[in-house]
Design a binder for these strands. Sequence first.
DNA 1: TCACCCAGAATATGATCAAATTTTTCAGTG
DNA 2: CACTGAAAAATTTGATCATATTCTGGGTGA
Lengths: 231, 231
Amino acid sequence: MDLIKKKAPKAAKSPADPPVHEQVYQTLRAQILFGEMAPGQPVTIQGLTDSLGAGMTPVREAIRRLISDGALVFQGNRRVSVPVLSAADVEQLIFARKTIESELARRAAKHVRPSLIEELEAIDAALDSAIAAGDVTGYLRYNYRFHAVLYDHANAPVMTDLVERLWLRFGPSLRVVCGRFGTQNLPDRHKELLQALRANDAGAAGEAMAQDVVQGMEMVEAMLSEQAANA
Amino acid sequence: MDLIKKKAPKAAKSPADPPVHEQVYQTLRAQILFGEMAPGQPVTIQGLTDSLGAGMTPVREAIRRLISDGALVFQGNRRVSVPVLSAADVEQLIFARKTIESELARRAAKHVRPSLIEELEAIDAALDSAIAAGDVTGYLRYNYRFHAVLYDHANAPVMTDLVERLWLRFGPSLRVVCGRFGTQNLPDRHKELLQALRANDAGAAGEAMAQDVVQGMEMVEAMLSEQAANA
DNA sequence: TCACCCAGAATATGATCAAATTTTTCAGTG
DNA sequence: CACTGAAAAATTTGATCATATTCTGGGTGA
């Protein structure tokens, strides 16, 4: 008999199966980015080992990475939670996003290929549908994807990395904003951006991106001061 | 009575002893920042557990954090190593550092207190001594400290975080630059910066910082193209 | 209100399994 | 008989888990 067979069928382990700690990281990252975790919510290792069915070590590693990303905060005692943004944080996010993301837009505008325009138009159409339907999760996902695809074409991995981290910081709060003000009122300058990309106008693309970033962040700022007033 | 004392000496365990994974992280971080690891050098978990006398789990967590910081790179197979900068990386580092660090200098210039000037002058004096003595490690440490202290006074933790990560990326290469060109030729605009801070001139402080950053990074750029030519 | 105790959660270790690299072996060929 | 090259064994390293230990926070009783 086969005493040797320790593990069962192994569930069709594909050749390049990402390690568990990577899967956990991606899962949590998406949850934070798309607002499935509320600002201030505590995050426990054991809670995640249960809900994700993973061991402690991979969960631990994923949490460390997310803390380093600024997506989670270590609270001095051994507690970890989803960060709550302060007004000062938002102000700095505005500056950093505005300068770096508009630069990425300028760079992307210099290597525009028709396939990029098509891809962005498709995403933006889906985004508009989500807005019309009041689908907050859809809005968050398509909005992220629009920016991510654009930045990918800027061929600037170092700067893109910085920006990805910034998005993780305000993801949870953005979800709250949508819940508060609805998706209808969310500004987007994607139409202007696409126009600039079609014209290969780097300056206009950068300007449109700066507008998009600032308007979005100002919604977050408004929500924060409203919360402060109600508290 | 102290029956409770389970372990004997415990080596003077102070009440707020940082966890092992934090100690490992700080140690590795310093080694990378101050050039004790060469670009391209492989980093193994088991090697670190031996050399640092720590268990696998804390070492693992520290490595994950450093990968997230951009201080180490994951090489697709399961290997981790110190990153080697490309010319494109350096170009992006220049843009990001220039915009963010000069903004930090501007902000710091608005809250200058005499104690800050004194502290920076002391560090800069030590920096000059290190340069005169050809002490590369001293140069790297004091130069970092000068910037870190200044940024601390900008009261902008989000942006400071971004910058700290950028420094981790070029730390190993900066060490190589110093070994290549010597400390004598390294530019520094700290004198102009201090002058601007004393005068509370935010614009001048930002300008001096931009100069400092660009000149330092251009040394790295020069080294890279030289290496490429020799290869 | 304060000291103390306890449940629960986090930290850390070592063992075990899996994957990748390196070394070794062994034909086959010129 | 030396040399090339592929296949296979062996070693090294990474990934995961189960378990033991330590610490934090809250509740309890004085």
